[in-house]
């Protein structure tokens, strides 16, 4: 059995859940194993109903008021007995902030392997070889798990595109008893990002700058280009960490996820955390002097040159177009 732990927020399945189901459907074909998805929460039956329409075999629902908020203790507490009983072959979890908060605990509590951040897999005989990224996505590592199943894997966001998700299922929905669970870690407060002029979620054009700009003052080049093209400004994490710009400009897994029609990445090497926040943009342009920069893997057009020459030239063209 291939087991998927669904991730959801605000009564909606998160995109990673579809990606995990895609991963599971592929494993299901290759290893001839049924797929079970499990959803934990309070009042999450509608989410189970949504998943059962996908081509999977079963949906398990653990519904309990104590599960209204995610905590690692509650997830490990509920999932461990289920997995001990169901004995799946593989357990798929998102390589997300939430997934990586409980997957390592769950795997250790059961003394089974966890391969985190998987981007691909292959079948060698009956063996499952999982591939993950190391050294900030510069290299891939193929791993063979040891011992018996279950094997835990967290899937990197974007690695198993949700577009491939097969519908046409009519999975059985099974309720699992979830007893009251206590959590040592208590949630006190949750605060959102301040929405202001840097709310990029609705921007149609975004010009983003990275560490390649070298210093804060040079970020003016990005603002000038954005102004000339009529776009908004974004930034990569190092820029925000260095306090060149406030946190709300950050694009990426710990900042905003954006999907504009045009995304211009300037001096951004393209760490995976950045790529997951912008790779669904319709058109991506990368300007970077390093031809090996990972940003070129997701870009549609690229210029490999000194950004201090390229950006002013680009700004000039757009200014001229505007005044023409």
């Amino acid at each position: 059995m291939i087991f998927v732990v669904a991730e959801h927020k605000d009564n909606k399945l998160k995109p990673i859940t579809s990606e995990l189901l895609v991963f599971a459907q592929r494993l299901s074909r290759d290893f001839n194993q049924p797929v079970t998805a499990v959803v934990l929460g309070a009042g999450v039956e509608p989410l189970a109903d949504e998943m059962k329409t996908k081509k999977i075999d079963r949906v398990m629902v653990a519904d309990h008021p104590d599960l209204a908020e995610y905590t690692p203790d509650s997830y490990v507490g509920v999932l461990k007995p289920i997995l001990e009983q169901e004995k799946p072959f593989v357990v798929l979890i998102g390589h997300t902030t939430q997934g990586m908060d409980f997957a390592p605990r769950l795997a250790v509590s059961m003394r089974h392997p966890l391969i985190a951040g998987c981007v691909e897999y292959e079948k060698q005989g009956d063996r499952l070889i999982l591939t993950r990224q190391i050294f900030n996505a510069k290299m891939n590592m193929k791993t063979a798990v040891r011992g018996g199943p279950p094997y835990f894997a967290t899937a990197s966001p974007g690695a198993f595109p949700a577009d491939d998700l097969e519908a046409g299922g009519n999975a059985e929905v099974v309720k699992v008893a979830a007893d009251s669970v206590s959590s040592r870690r208590k949630i006190l407060e949750r605060t959102g990002v301040q929405k202001g002029k840097a709310d990029l979620s609705s921007a149609s054009i975004i010009v983003s700058g990275g560490r390649g700009l070298k210093q804060k003052e040079n970020f003016d080049l990005i603002f000038e280009l954005a102004d000339a093209i009529g776009g908004s400004v974004g930034a990569s994490r190092p820029v925000v960490d260095a306090e060149w710009l406030p946190r709300e400009y950050q694009v990426g897994s710990s900042g905003q996820t954006v999907s504009p029609k045009l995304y211009i990445a300037v001096g951004i090497s393209g760490a995976i955390q950045h790529l997951v926040g912008m790779q669904t943009a319709r058109c991506i342009v990368a300007i970077n002097k390093d031809p090996e920069a990972p940003i070129f893997k997701v870009a549609h057009y690229g210029i490999v040159d000194d950004l201090f020459k390229v950006v002013p030239a680009l700004t000039k063209i757009f200014k001229d177009l505007k005044s023409a």
């Binding site: 089974h112 392997p113 290299m139 193929k142 791993t143 031809p291 893997k297 997701v298």
Partner: peptide
């Protein structure tokens, strides 16, 4: 260890990027 490293490799580029050359 719970897993064995089978192989380390440089990932293939699946990219379709079109690099535009010439002067800036």
């Amino acid at each position: 260890a719970m897993y064995e490293v089978k192989e380390i490799l440089i990932p293939e580029k699946k990219s379709k990027v079109e690099i535009l050359g010439g002067t800036a």
